[in-house]
Design a protein around this nucleic acid. Structure first.
Length: 489
RNA sequence: CGGGGUGUAGCGCAGCCCGGUUAGCGCGCGUCGUUCGGGACGACGAGGUCGGAGGUUCGAAUCCUCUCACCCCGACCA
């Protein structure tokens, strides 16, 4: 059993691809680079959305929705922004088809758009163009808006969840009266992401600032949370940007301040995407299949009755009914799998593969003994438990699994984080993967040289890192603090 | 956009080099029966434009030309 899946040690990338497909999370569509997110995968995404949305609301944000299409001219209004996205935009040029005897339908050449439309790669431009009409006075600020949407970036090479041409995300776009407030907002949302990653995804993250070369096109400062996958590679799990007045200036968004003076507003934007699904999968899953933290599991407890016939099935249902009610009363999601077409062994393997956090098996022996068999997905341990107080025990078990997954991920990150001081040492260390803390002279040239030499990039300048100064490992020039180098997704 | 690879049943593959008549195998699927505490077994059965278009040939999954799609590795990117 379980040779359905490539082993992580044999081929990590292949393991990931196999897992996404075989655990029914997503599949490739007929459209190149675009995926179909299947119910099991989408259900996890919905849980993420739910938790994040509550956190956004709790920090004063509201949701809205802006158009999928952006007039081409808008994109051009902010110079570095257009430069950042121009190479990967899908463009709508026509608005009509006509039937054709040979090809079925063809684009109607008479239906060319006056101004071509860009399928949004991100929505700053259309949103700031709209905000112009909404902001007149400091009394209209701050504007704290989020949208859940799809965006399109025409990527050369795609991977399910990690990089697809179309993906789902949320993008927050806020407007503020002062620079300090906008920066505070960027930092607040970075904290929200970090909390979400650690408490829900059970992924430890490092909060940091991107270097100029990794910065969002159009931002003054880009903040990020960086996570480490099981193969030691880094994955950016969320970003938050302080946009300064760049978009306000480009779209002429001004307000009257308390001194009755006209001023451009200050902005932030922040987002996380379905890429988090990739992060979740690569952080916790194993050679037996998917592992999902209880807080995000579509169903937390799978109950497998072991029955020879319909009467036994019914007896088990009755036996388990009060426990089921207790579990549900505690807010635990439970599936009682009474499908008589599948054997128990098949179900065990299936629930394991799909990452159900807890599985409870009940057979005739259990009914005699007043027990059930409880298996936890994270450690694959099984134990027989008395049904007395089972609801409470399962509740604790789910909490324990959530916390164990986080601790395991944290332990892995710590094991693969190293401090180096010389470039030779660095080159050796980077081959083994993981995060490398090293001094950097702050120049793009050095960063680029390291990238050319080793394929590693600066993932971030950590916000909470060791601030002791030193000398750049490459040039020997003075450095304020160590930064994180890694190979990244 | 460069390099490599793959397209044959829902999925995974064999057959192709060396052309030959009803195109196979495993899994899955359907019916029936026996099973049911870690992916059960038997019997019977359904399911195919061999990616597409041209060509060579008496005859093409197989040979030739063109083409499309996808996957993997690089460059680019969340």
């Amino acid at each position: 059993m379980a040779d359905l899946l490539t082993k992580r040690a044999d081929d990590y990338a292949q393991w990931y691809n196999d897992l996404v497909l075989k655990a029914d999370l997503a599949e490739h569509s007929d459209v190149r680079g675009c995926m179909v997110i299947k119910p099991h995968g989408y259900s996890i995404w919905e849980k993420m959305q739910g938790a994040l949305d509550r956190m956004f609301k709790d920090t004063g944000h509201v949701n809205a929705y802006f158009p999928l299409f952006i007039p081409k001219s808008y994109l051009a209004k902010e110079a570095s922004h257009v430069e950042g996205f121009a190479k990967e935009c899908a463009v709508v040029t026509h608005y009509r088809l006509k039937s054709d005897p040979v090809h079925g339908v063809v684009v109607d050449p008479d239906a060319r758009l006056e101004e071509e439309l860009i399928v949004r790669p991100t929505s700053e431009t259309i949103i700031w163009n709209t905000y112009r009409g909404w902001v007149k006075s400091y009394r209209d600020l701050p504007l704290l808006i989020n949208q859940w949407a799809n965006v399109v970036r025409w990527e050369m090479r795609t991977r399910l969840f990690l990089r697809t041409a179309e993906f789902l995300w949320q993008e927050g776009h806020t407007a503020h009266a002062t620079k300090a407030e906008a920066i505070e907002e960027s930092e607040r949302m970075l904290d929200v992401y970090a909390t979400f990653a650690e408490e829900w995804l059970a992924i430890p993250v490092i909060k940091g600032i991107k270097t100029a070369s990794e910065r969002f096109a159009g931002a003054e400062e880009t903040y990020c949370i960086e996570a480490m996958m099981q193969d030691g590679k880094a994955l950016q799990a969320g970003t938050s940007h302080f946009l300064g007045q760049n978009f306000a200036k480009a779209f002429d968004v001004v307000f009257t301040n308390r001194e009755n003076k006209q001023e451009h507003v200050w902005a932030s934007s922040w987002g996380v995407s379905t890429r988090l699904m990739g992060a979740l999968i690569m952080t916790h899953s194993d050679d037996q299949g998917l592992v999902v933290p209880p807080k995000l599991a579509p169903v937390q407890v799978a109950v497998v009755p072991i029955a020879k016939n319909a009467e036994q099935m019914e007896a088990i249902r009755v036996y388990f009914a009060p426990i089921m009610a207790d579990l549900r009363g505690r807010g635990i999601t439970v599936k009682f799998d009474d499908d008589d077409q599948k054997k128990p062994g098949w179900k065990f393997a299936e629930y394991e593969f799909k990452g159900y956090p807890v599985r409870i098996a009940i057979g005739p022996r259990d009914m005699e003994n007043g027990t059930v068999e409880v298996a936890r997905r994270d450690t694959l341990e099984k134990q027989v438990m008395q049904t007395v107080d089972l609801g409470e025990k399962v509740e604790h078990l789910l909490t324990a699994i959530q916390s164990n997954l986080y601790q395991k991920a944290l332990a892995l990150r710590e094991r693969y984080t190293r401090v180096v001081d010389s470039y030779d040492e660095f080159k050796e260390a980077i081959e083994e993967g993981g995060f490398i803390l090293a001094h950097w002279d702050g120049t793009a040239a050095t960063e680029e040289k390291v990238k050319q030499d080793t394929k590693a990039t600066i993932r971030c300048i950590p916000l909470n890192g060791d601030r002791s100064p030193g000398r750049c490992m490459v040039t020997g020039a003075p450095s304020n603090q160590r930064v994180i180098f890694a190979r990244a997704y």
